[in-house]
Amino acid sequence: MTEEPRRETWPLWEVFVRSARGLSHVHAGSLHAPDAELAVRNARDLYTRRSEGVSIWVVPAAAITASDPDAKDAWFESPRGKDFRHATYYTASQAVPHL
């Protein structure tokens, strides 16, 4: 193939769906759409056909900033060993009511 690599026809969007009032929007998947208005409608058609949602967010995939995948250890090591952030660490008070 000598052709120029073709530009993506429509950009990629990430879809987040709130399944019921009171819950967070959760990543459901992605889709292609030319613009935000169509993206959110395509998301409705694609990801809520079986009443899976009451609210939808779409975000251009290119707008997402992710943590550095190659630096996992440096990023996620610190919390390990700091169990005192969790209630289960505090065993002496375990039997005390309403605590």
């Binding site: 993506e8 026809t9 990629l12 998947g29 992605s30 889709l31 292609h32 694609l46 056909r49």
Partner: peptide
């Protein structure tokens, strides 16, 4: 059609575009 879309999307995470 929806299932094709889910799968294309999943494959796109490997760096291959749907196009």
């Amino acid at each position: 059609a929806g299932h094709g879309l889910y799968l294309y999307s999943a494959a796109e995470t490997l760096g291959t575009t749907r196009d």
